[in-house]
Amino acid sequence: MFDPFNIFFKSSRYWLVKNITKLLTSGTRRVEFTDFWMGDQFCSLVFTLSNLYLFACSYTVGFENWHKCGSTANTWPAAFILAMLPFLIRLIQSIKRYVDSKLTTHLINGGKYFCGIIYYLCYYIWRHQGSLRNTSFAFWCLFGALYSVYASAWDFWMDWSLLRPHVNYPFLRAELIYTDHIPFYYFAIISNVLVRFIWVIYIPSVSAPNMYLRLFIAGFLEMLRRWQWNFVRLENEHLGNMDQYRVTREVPLPYSFDDNHHHVGDTDDD
């Protein structure tokens, strides 16, 4: 990532490093599209980020004792901090956008990420207590359902602008770019909801795959969901830019304009 030589796509690597740095300084500057778009990508990498601690801890205690570093150990707060970091960044970005624009939609969006932080807090507390059917389990299920419904609704109505009435294709929108792949939209709607509720895979306690295998399956499916989400999200952003006349292309003029030679008495014909 930090290789200074102009090989292995140096400009792309440095672009990524620069934008990750901007994420870590969210709230100190104006939030642009790249900032919150990258933040959304990292929200789908919770499995990867939370396991960075597990990976480092396994080196410390030895890989034969890596289970000591799991969420049931006393070290779970470190994994939780890494897991909720993308949500915290997006929450700060939403608050900053509200301060700059005074649009309450940004606060509503921020509420989604705050709900996600509470969801992961309840999850790690539940796992730390041995995955018992107790109060922490009830709160985890409650906030899991709330966050999944919240996020799915925001995906459809705001990020994708779907579920519009009186359109050519039911539950879609008036303008579409991928007109040759209409079934894709319906597949995206259904699969997006299913993966948003993938946390239910953790509930079974008997006759179920190992919890770490279930974590991997959930993380992998969330990665695919975000990959799919990006196509419709960028399509919606492009259409919104067109509607608000933000898509422009500067055409170079065949001459230069010099203010010093433009006199007040010059006419339009001149």
Rank of each mutant, 00 (worst) to 15 (best):
T28Y: 14
M1F: 14
I89G: 02
F8T: 08
V99S: 12
Q41F: 14
L85A: 15
L24V: 05
Y59Q: 12
D100K: 01
Q41R: 11
T60G: 12
F63N: 14
E32R: 12
I7Y: 10
F2W: 14
D3K: 08
N19G: 02
K96P: 01
L49R: 05
G70M: 01
K112G: 11
F33T: 08
N51H: 14
L91F: 15
Y98K: 03
G110Q: 01
K10C: 00
R30N: 08
S94K: 02
L85F: 10
L23M: 05
G27W: 00
E64K: 12
K112W: 00
D40L: 10
D3I: 08
A73V: 03
F9R: 12
L88F: 11
A73G: 14
A83H: 07
K96I: 00
L54Q: 13
G70H: 06
L54T: 13
G111K: 02
S26I: 00
L24C: 10
E64Y: 03
L52C: 15
K18P: 04
L45Y: 13
D35P: 03
V99C: 11
E64V: 08
L23W: 01
G27N: 05
V61E: 07
H106I: 02
L85N: 05
G110A: 00
N6M: 10
T34A: 09
F9A: 14
G62R: 07
F55L: 15
T28N: 13
N6P: 06
R30L: 06
S71Y: 13
P77D: 07
T34D: 10
S58T: 09
S71T: 08
L52A: 11
Y59T: 11
V31D: 01
S44T: 07
S101N: 09
